[in-house]
């Protein structure tokens, strides 16, 4: 066997091992999460524009982030009204609210250069609003869930996080280390909300200030 073929074999062997470990790890969360309702975004059958938009939606479903400095116990870390369970390579966020939310909230403020795109029913208790900027193909989204047992899965690599109190709201903020992407978690009257996009905190605050009950749902 040539030197290059031996090296190729080593690379493939390592890649195969990584895939195997990654697949097994993905399903290992089934051990801890079997009782909770899975919060998974679902797209209704609507016209899809391009594969890139589908990938952006997938990214918001996974909610990529990292904890900069966190000490977590085996039972999980509580920040504000959320429980963060740190797994190997990802985090699971669950709401600690006693009651389900009653309303979905639509922001009256739309970030400059963006336009409202669509509202997608993820399941009976979750909705997903998207806004697009056709000039640069960017999108931001607002995911909402009424279910107190909602959970979200986040890859914890590449994000710095901090907490912020804004008015009556406790915000958990994740900032991408390599792009302007920001993800903000909050609760409003029992409704679990995640705002995700290339946004400034000022824009996030304006979105929060402009939430009104969505009577159409």
């Amino acid at each position: 066997m040539t030197k290059e073929k031996a090296e190729a074999e080593r690379i493939l062997s390592e890649y195969g091992r990584r895939m195997f470990d990654s697949h097994a790890r993905y399903f290992s969360s089934a051990d801890e999460i079997s009782q909770a309702e899975t919060y998974v975004p679902v797209r209704s059958r609507s016209t899809r524009r391009i594969a890139k938009r589908a990938l952006i939606l997938c990214a918001t479903m996974i909610l990529i982030m990292s904890l900069a400095v966190v000490a977590a116990s085996a039972l999980g870390l509580q920040i504000f009204n959320y429980k963060f369970d740190i797994k190997d390579g990802f985090i699971v966020i669950t709401s600690l609210d006693e009651e389900n939310g009653s309303h979905f909230y639509r922001p009256e403020y739309i970030v400059e250069s963006y336009s409202y795109n669509e509202k997608i029913a993820l399941n009976d208790s979750s909705y997903y609003y998207t806004y697009v900027n056709d000039d640069n193909n960017l999108e931001y989204s607002i995911e909402e869930s009424l279910n107190k047992d909602s959970i979200m899965y986040i890859d914890n690599e590449g994000y710095d996080n901090y907490k912020e109190t804004y008015g009556e709201y406790e915000l958990v903020v994740y900032r991408d280390q390599t792009s302007p992407r920001i993800i903000v978690y909050m609760e409003k009257e029992g409704t679990f909300i995640a705002i995700n996009g290339h946004l400034s905190m000022d824009q996030i605050h304006r979105i929060i200030d402009s939430f009104v009950i969505d009577d159409s749902i």
Binding site: S29, T38, V40, C58
Partner: peptide, 9 residues
């Protein structure tokens, strides 16, 4: 649950 999550993605 995880199979659904992967499939939906």
């Amino acid at each position: 649950a995880m199979m659904m999550k992967l499939s939906i993605q």
